[in-house]
Amino acid sequence: MQENEKKLLRRELLNRIGLGAATAAVAVTLPAGAGAAVARDPVHYAMVIDTRRCIGCQACSVACKAEFAVPLGATRSWVEYVEKGTFPHVSRQFLPRLCNHCRNPQCVNVCPTGATFKRAEDGIVVVDPEVCIGCKYCIQACPYDARFIHPDTGAADKCDFCLHRVGRGLVPACVNTCQGRARIFGDMNDPASAVAQLIATQPVTVLRQGMGTRPSVFYIAADHSDPRETRVPSQYVRVDTHRRIQERR
């Protein structure tokens, strides 16, 4: 397939695949008098990460790497280890991380060309490598260090909630492989969905709440300790990022 054709397909994919998902749904006819029909809000994909279920195995990190052949040195999804305490009262918590597909995305706000945008039909924040000029403004702007410049395209790149899978009814690669079933993915606008129910009933947190980004990735029982913010100077807090960028941003 020619390069141009590949690129066209990619753009089409980005734009259309969300619609495809809605129309391909199997319609189940229910008899009259069936349960209350739910009003159709636009789909908004979100992920809940229950860190109680995470064992830090990094299957998700490697699955993501493999699914997209992410170049060495870059990561779309990774797992941090947060270790703290004084012997023998030591804890190590695991914090899986990825693009948060913010509802107020800084990357979109700063992008000069509109290459990065939040899809109206499902809320996924994507980058069109054809339009991106590689200015790196978004890399700086993202408070979660979720983006990188792809060495092959020179364009910005990041997690896209496995758009190519989700649009065809498959869960994202990280969700598929997770041993603890710690990653729950779905439409947060659907009150019957698992993500919506968890968000509504569990004490969930997001990363760097004060930034006003309104992430679509929610955590249950996450340890938000950060070595830069220890209250007690001598307190031991260490974060291992397991990626090239060894300090957490």
């Binding site: 069936a34 349960g35 209350a36 779905g186 019957a192 969905s193 698992a194 129910q197």
Partner: peptide
């Protein structure tokens, strides 16, 4: 069970 049904797009109607 509730979560499982939710993942399949089903929920118990309130009136039930």
């Amino acid at each position: 069970v509730k979560t499982c049904m939710g993942e399949a797009g089903c929920a118990v109607a309130d009136q039930a």
